[in-house]
Nucleic acid binder design. Structure first.
Lengths: 352, 352
DNA sequence: AAGTTGCATGTAATCGATTACATGAGGTTG
DNA sequence: CAACCTCATGTAATCGATTACATGCAACTT
């Protein structure tokens, strides 16, 4: 409305209304726009004198290239999409940070999509991606876009580089960055068994979740290695949340014969479960040992402190971002990167 | 590498390499590109027949508008930047979710910048913003961009709509969404005093932080209201992290006369502090009461469960996003929105 | 019937960069 | 010395949408 008026008047005034364009820089440096562009993108192809004049003009005008124009022409956005199932989950925040810092160093920005279990959102972000708003994506949600829908017309194929982080995507020919969930779960199970526990309960992740399947396999591996029988009655359903841990705890409290140890496949569940046990007057680890998975920040300061599997979350994020950057810049990347986990022994698990 | 080869061959094959453009849709629907554009942006200005043909053509081609082209012309990105001091901090994740869901509903995407205390990053994102990559920003970091630097050339003024969330920005003429930190801190202090505590310690946030200043004022208000003296020896430095709580706990443990209650200005610090007290053989709340602030997820399941101030984090995020969207769409927004907090009484605080 | 209004639509300018191609200067080679 | 190459630079096409302006037609007014 009145902006136009201001714009007209501003010519003689102090406040430049429009941001400087490449043309303004070119004029000031007395070169063509092509030279300005080259001075920034490929400085070695511009004479030192011209480059100096261009840089000076840029400093003087405060020129910042218009990303939309750049993207339109070059088809590069310097943006990466990070798809995650639940932004509010503590587990992801440090991973995100690892991703963000690595992307940032390479000049990429990060767009976050919290799917929140909504297929609409997933479709939206699939379209978003197909529209070319990002150069690549990190998938933390365990599956590719739009694998569900099939219909008339092309389903907007996504052809940009992708990497899968944490939750491997079976059959997808993209780099997978993860830990060895099966080995880690087996390790924890054997640790519990080695302390004399013979009735070990297992609080699971969501059914069909790939992490869950691997950890569950690891749990069974561990039982077998320790010569313990597998008892379906000791498998409690969960979904990695605090509330699931609380519910699993209620289940246990209500039982007449209880396990002596519980392996929760997330720290959140372990903390929720311990809470319920305390409320029922049970002690950890005296009455029942509790183990977690992930080693989130609160694991070390829980009461009692939590024996768990340490996941290098920041490094996972960094590795995923690096792999993606490799792809984006035309380099190749290993198809599978597995980072080491660590069994962290604290106070929530004790010998029988 | 071999992608190019595939591209060449694909011409006669099944896979369309290029995404459909508005021209393709226009041709198929037998209308001009202008009509296609209008059919999407202002459907009421297009005849029902033309609209139907356009929609059909869009469905057939899988057309998605190119955001770069759209942004270049219309100067709208439909992107919002969220600036936060620390992505790995649990406190922010639920706020982010509130922001994200509200933005999403309004058709905006969210770009996250984790400043991580780095001035470089701040400068980068200031440039990012100045370059017009986002339509607006939510600032959770307590200050505006680039208030520090002054130099030759225009410092790339940022003129897009901004809102401040949680940490108010004094003097900035932008909507501020927050809680009444002072009143909440006062409330908690009076609660502790009402239970008979007379030596109440206070674990602070970072010096100069606006939240800290307000909460500290509230603490003093509360002391005064309860007729208690202010004792500088009972003020412990902190920065809202678990580690700061641990350190404050070590300080307390080492003292000969200890306070009977500790008011930590974040739940993280309260949890870290309790951890240290336990390790030293002290009991909460029998030996010492501990109160927190924020009511993060873990507050309810900590052992003992944490008496704290509940902040409506999701609603804060939603309110900030709504305010920003109002501004982005040319509506006005209240300059100050204060959401209600709640004193949540749990087990970590007991009468003297 | 002439003039006015409003609607649906098309034409083409425009946003601001990148980059293919052209040009001319200076250097090298046979 | 002609032919050729290299290098720095400029010219202008291009990316794919939005939108100002123009146009043509139908309906309404007087």
């Amino acid at each position: 409305m009145d902006e136009a008026g201001q714009g007209d008047r501003a010519e003689q005034g102090a406040i430049p209304i429009r941001a400087a364009r490449i043309q303004d820089v070119a004029k000031l440096a007395d070169v063509s726009t092509a030279t300005v562009s080259r001075a920034l993108a490929t400085p070695e192809r511009v004479s030192p004198e011209a480059r100096a004049r261009v840089l000076e003009a840029i400093a003087k005008t405060g020129y910042v290239p218009n990303p939309a124009a750049r993207t339109l022409r070059s088809q590069k956005t310097y943006m990466v999409l990070v798809v995650l199932p639940d932004l509010a989950n503590t587990f992801f925040s440090k991973i995100l940070r690892g991703i963000e810092e690595t992307l940032f160093e390479a000049g990429y920005g990060m767009i976050i999509s919290d799917l929140d279990g909504s297929p609409e959102k997933e479709a939206h972000f699939a379209a978003f991606t197909a529209a070319g708003r990002v150069d690549g994506a990190v998938l933390l949600n365990g599956h590719l876009f739009g694998q569900s829908r099939e219909g008339e017309g092309q389903p907007a194929r996504i052809t940009i580089p992708l990497v899968a982080l944490c939750e491997a995507i079976p059959g997808a020919d993209i780099p997978q960055i993860e830990i060895d969930n099966r080995a880690a779960a087996s390790r924890m199970t054997r640790h519990l068994a080695s302390l004399g526990h013979r009735r070990i309960a297992y609080v699971s992740g969501p059914a069909n979740n790939i992490l869950e399947r691997e950890r569950f396999q690891g749990f069974k591996d561990g039982l077998e290695a320790a010569g313990l029988p597998y008892d379906p009655a000791l498998i409690l359903p969960g979904d990695y949340t605090i509330e699931a841990g609380v519910r699993a705890g209620q289940d246990l409290v209500a039982r007449s014969t209880r396990p002596t140890a519980v392996f929760c496949t997330s720290d959140e569940m372990a903390i929720g479960l311990m809470r319920t046990l305390f409320s029922a007057g049970l002690r950890v680890p005296e009455d029942i040992s509790v183990a977690g998975f992930d080693d989130i920040e609160f694991a070390a300061v829980a009461e009692p402190s939590l024996t768990t599997i340490h996941q290098p979350r920041r490094e996972l994020g960094q590795a995923a971002a690096s792999a993606l950057i490799d792809l984006l810049q035309g380099r190749s990347s290993p198809k599978r990167i597995r980072l080491e986990t660590e069994l962290v022994i604290r106070d929530s698990v004790a010998p029988l």
